[in-house]
């Protein structure tokens, strides 16, 4: 059985182009997948950090903080990601270099990966801010007032009262954003990142066998989204424990 399947990947067989070792492209595709996931995880972490600060800033911050975060979320969500990625991708290294130069240091050439992660993270952060803000606002006001009445300090209040109750509302939106993050990594192909989509295109263009490559890449993306859909559905069940059942979850 396993033998028959592994023979499919021999050169000249149906899936010969996808064999792990060269001349097959399987290894390259998997490396591309790895880079895509790496970018997505990094961008998600950056976005989550921005989102937490943004959400609390927008709700509990002063007037200036609120307006600044308001402008950030509005502008970022109104401009296509591709355009933002291009602007930031050229802007970040230039700003870093001009700061370095003004302090008398030499120019550095920033590595591609962190810049890409940062750029996607900034975009994701705007959406995350809105998701988290909505879920914090959905926590009943009485809960927070009661905690304040017992004299809870703000950090303890956030950790023990707001966080557990907002999680259930936040998970579906956060799951969507994770799926967006994995799919947005494909946008970095346009500026020459060697992630899954660009590797696929290179393989397809070299071998002129577009269907095999695009279907293989599509399946990889689908596996990511199905697996993470299951994962988030499980987290949501955990976050909703003790609450009345609602339908939903999963792709």
């Amino acid at each position: 059985m396993f033998d028959a399947i592994s023979h499919l990947f021999d050169p000249g067989q149906a899936l010969g182009l996808l064999a792990y070792a060269p001349p097959g492209w399987g290894g390259n595709l998997l490396a591309g997948l790895g880079r895509s996931i790496e970018i997505a995880v990094g961008a998600y972490a950056v976005g989550l950090t921005i989102g937490i600060f943004g959400a609390f800033g927008k709700i509990y911050g002063g007037e200036v903080t609120r307006d600044i975060f308001g402008i950030y979320t509005t502008v970022v969500r109104a401009v296509p990601e591709l355009v933002e990625i291009l602007i930031l991708y050229y802007l970040v290294p230039q700003v870093v270099n001009s700061i370095l130069l003004s302090f008398g240091y030499d120019r550095v050439s920033l590595p591609q990966m962190p810049v890409g992660i940062l750029v996607l993270g900034v975009v994701l952060g705007a959406y995350m801010t809105e998701v988290l803000r909505g879920s914090i606002l959905a926590v009943p006001q009485g809960q927070i007032e009661a905690a304040r009445a017992y004299g809870m300090p703000p950090l303890l209040l956030a950790r023990r009262i707001i966080f557990p109750q907002m999680m259930a509302n936040a998970i579906p939106g956060m799951a969507n954003l994770w799926l967006n993050a994995t799919k947005d990594t494909a946008l970095l192909a346009v500026i020459g990142f060697n992630e899954l989509t660009l590797t696929t295109m290179q393989g397809a263009a070299t071998t002129k066998n577009y269907f095999v490559f695009f279907i293989a890449a599509g399946l990889m993306y689908l596996v990511i989204s199905i697996v993470s859909g299951r994962f988030f559905a499980r987290i949501e069940r955990w976050a909703r424990r003790g609450q009345p059942l609602v339908r939903g979850g999963g792709i």
Binding site: K183, T197, M201, F214, Y221, L222, I251
Partner: peptide
Amino acid sequence: SLIRGTPLLLQLW
């Protein structure tokens, strides 16, 4: 699920 699970760029190409 297919449309929502794969990047638009991949579909376009």
